[in-house]
């Protein structure tokens, strides 16, 4: 099962490699990993999407908690939560009608953020599934470049994070 694990950790050099190293050393899977500083500059927030059965996810959470730099670990999937991912998509607009492209963009509330003679650069934020669905509306031959940030997320109630 897919889990989104949120990790609050000391904003120290090497902290990221401790987490990444833990996943590779113990054979845990990483679907995506995002990290950035928080409003408190001494802390970073990392969001990891992993796939595994309950036993594996339990081990991932426990092993992350064992890392000295880790302050808090939350399995967002176990709570009411919001997840978002950002997509930047460059497409070849030759031989696509303007009407078609407008419809695709409207349907997903995507944005055109840059235009050249024969390419559009589109931006879309949403759940990973929405981004997958959006990508699936384009013929692969028309997709020139895909850049996804990976998932980040927060718990909806006040208590968790």
């Amino acid at each position: 099962m897919r889990h989104i694990i949120s990790v609050l950790l000391e904003n120290e050099s090497g902290a990221l490699s401790r987490v990444a190293g833990l996943f590779s050393a113990r054979g845990f899977n990483i679907e995506s990993l995002t990290v950035a500083a928080t409003h408190d500059s001494t802390l970073s927030k990392m969001t990891i999407v992993s796939i595994g059965d309950d036993g594996i996810i339990e081990q991932i959470v426990k092993q992350l908690n064992k890392l000295i730099d880790v302050v808090e670990v939350t399995d967002l999937t176990a709570h009411e939560h919001i997840e978002r991912e950002l997509l930047l998509l460059k497409i070849d607009v030759n031989s696509i009608t303007q009407a078609d492209i407008d419809k695709q963009i409207d349907d997903f509330s995507a944005k055109i953020i840059d235009v050249s003679e024969d390419t559009y650069l589109l931006e879309l934020a949403g759940k990973s599934q929405k981004i997958n669905d959006f990508l699936a509306t384009f013929k692969t031959t028309k997709i020139l470049e895909v850049a996804r940030t990976g998932v980040t997320g927060v718990c909806q109630n006040r208590e968790n994070n």
Binding site: G55, E58, Q59, K62, Q63, N65, K66
Partner: peptide, 10 residues
Amino acid sequence: DPSSIGKTVS
């Protein structure tokens, strides 16, 4: 160590 518990045996 909580990570030792339930690692190989339930």
